[in-house]
Amino acid sequence: MTDNVSLVSGVAKRYASALLDLAEETGVTADVERDLGNFEGFLAESSDLDRLVKSPAFSAEEQLNALTALLDKAQISGLAGNFVKLAARNRRLFVLPDMIKAFRVLLAEKRGEETAEVVSAAELSDDQVTALKEALSASSGKSVNISAKVDPALIGGLVVKVGSRMIDTSLRTKLNSLKFAMKEVG
């Protein structure tokens, strides 16, 4: 039995690898990186776009038409635009967010960089992001990029994931640990 997660990540990695190879061959890697980042921003901001990308209820043609209009309006063209359209044509649009993430990971590996996924209770300031980058770069010995998300349920603190390492200093986790310890005592 095939695990859906590994299947999806395998598909995402293959598409991302092909995109990176083509971007490098044609010398447009920075443009593709920027355009995919912009598209990812639209996905995060629009629940309708997220639904269009993830829902099998829309036909490939409907997805392609809607995305073509969005890409044109957002001025995302060239290799990145064609990549998004290819994912729609091949009915792989639901994997697109993972493809973009895999592209970033592969590109970072080629550059000798690492990406830290940081979840905080509130949005981090530019100074906090810079300080976190410097601290993580110093500890890993590599240049570290930050992918930040906000989760108010953490109450306070951070959850930082770099590669296979995870550091959880969130108040939610500390409170849960305290609750567990108190149950053991009582």
Rank of each mutant, 00 (worst) to 15 (best):
S46N: 09
V28T: 15
D50A: 15
K183S: 13
N176V: 02
V28I: 13
D98H: 04
D127L: 15
R111N: 10
N4Q: 10
N82F: 00
A102D: 04
S170A: 12
R92D: 01
A80C: 13
L22S: 06
E184L: 09
N4K: 11
A102N: 05
V144N: 00
L70F: 09
A181N: 12
F94R: 08
E114K: 12
L154P: 02
V32H: 07
T115D: 01
P56K: 14
G186E: 11
Q63N: 06
R51S: 03
A138Y: 06
G78L: 15
V162P: 06
S125D: 05
P97L: 00
Q75I: 08
R89G: 03
L124G: 05
R165P: 03
T115P: 05
E25T: 02
S140H: 04
L178M: 14
S177D: 15
E123Q: 13
D151P: 10
R172H: 06
T115G: 04
F42L: 11
L93G: 00
V162N: 05
R111C: 03
K73I: 02
F103M: 01
Q75S: 14
L158N: 02
L86T: 09
P56C: 11
A102C: 08
A60Q: 12
L19D: 01
G81P: 02
T68N: 07
F42E: 01
L22T: 11
D3F: 10
K179R: 15
R91G: 02
A131V: 09
S47G: 10
L67A: 05
E113C: 01
A121Q: 09
E134S: 15
R165H: 14
G78K: 13
E114I: 07
A116K: 03
A148H: 14
L49M: 07
G141E: 14
K73S: 12
S164K: 13
K13V: 13
E117T: 13
E24A: 07
G186A: 14
N65H: 07
Y15R: 02
F94P: 00
G10Q: 08
I155Q: 05
D151H: 14
S47Y: 10
S47N: 08
F103L: 04
Q75H: 13
I167N: 02
L7C: 06
D98E: 15
T130E: 13
V84E: 00
E109H: 11
D31R: 05
V144D: 01
V11M: 15
V11A: 10
A74F: 00
K149N: 13
A135S: 14
F83T: 06
I155H: 04
L71P: 01
A23M: 04
